Simulated scan of single mutants.
Amino acid sequence: MRMNTNDVVSLISKIREKANRFIVSEMTKYGVEGIVTSHGDIINALFKNPRLTMAEIAGKIGRDKSTVTTLVDKLVRFGYVTKERDTVDTRVVYVTLTSKGSELKPIFNAISREVLNTLYFDISENEKEELVRILNKIHKNL
């Protein structure tokens, strides 16, 4: 089956949309509401590094600082993270997980496993390796 560029872009867009809907649905099953997948990127970054600046988060998740600020502010309102200004340079804002935010780690891990199980259903190990190899090439090309 030969696909043109528009077909490929449309398919990738549809896969991303379905994956995001699946993740939000899974979070709802666990009682986690109000968080979208872009919030999950921030929370996952904080699982790996418990205290990050807004600029560090922006770099790690590939978003601009203004977008990160908006996303973090919502996470603060939901009680998942706190913000703290640097005492020396007040332009620098640190973000840390609250205990409520830290409690999301096992939930996120379970959802990640479920997403992968769903994505890889009926796909052989060789196909998985080939898919990852090709996706890494595409990522590198961009």
Results as ranks from 00 to 15, higher is better:
43 I>S: 02
44 N>P: 00
44 N>A: 01
45 A>G: 08
45 A>T: 12
46 L>E: 12
46 L>R: 08
47 F>A: 07
47 F>P: 01
47 F>Q: 10
47 F>G: 07
47 F>M: 03
48 K>V: 02
48 K>I: 07
49 N>R: 12
49 N>C: 02
49 N>T: 12
49 N>W: 04
50 P>C: 02
50 P>Q: 09
50 P>R: 11
50 P>L: 03
51 R>Y: 08
51 R>F: 00
51 R>N: 08
53 T>G: 00
54 M>Q: 14
55 A>D: 13
55 A>T: 13
55 A>Y: 06
55 A>M: 03
56 E>I: 00
56 E>L: 00
57 I>V: 14
57 I>G: 11
58 A>H: 06
59 G>N: 15
60 K>H: 13
61 I>L: 08
61 I>K: 06
62 G>K: 12
62 G>P: 07
63 R>S: 14
64 D>S: 10
65 K>T: 14
65 K>E: 14
66 S>C: 01
67 T>S: 09
67 T>P: 02
67 T>R: 02
68 V>A: 00
68 V>Q: 05
69 T>Q: 01
69 T>S: 09
69 T>P: 01
70 T>A: 13
71 L>V: 05
72 V>S: 01
73 D>Y: 09
74 K>H: 07
75 L>R: 12
76 V>I: 04
76 V>H: 08
76 V>W: 07
76 V>A: 04
77 R>W: 04
78 F>D: 08
79 G>H: 07
80 Y>I: 04
83 K>H: 06
83 K>M: 14
83 K>R: 15
84 E>Q: 07
85 R>S: 14
86 D>M: 11
86 D>Y: 07
87 T>V: 15
88 V>H: 03
88 V>E: 10
88 V>F: 03
88 V>A: 06
89 D>V: 10
89 D>I: 10
90 T>Y: 09
90 T>P: 12
91 R>L: 14
92 V>D: 05
93 V>Y: 06
93 V>W: 05
93 V>S: 09
93 V>D: 04
93 V>L: 05
94 Y>G: 11
95 V>K: 11
95 V>W: 01
96 T>R: 15
96 T>H: 09
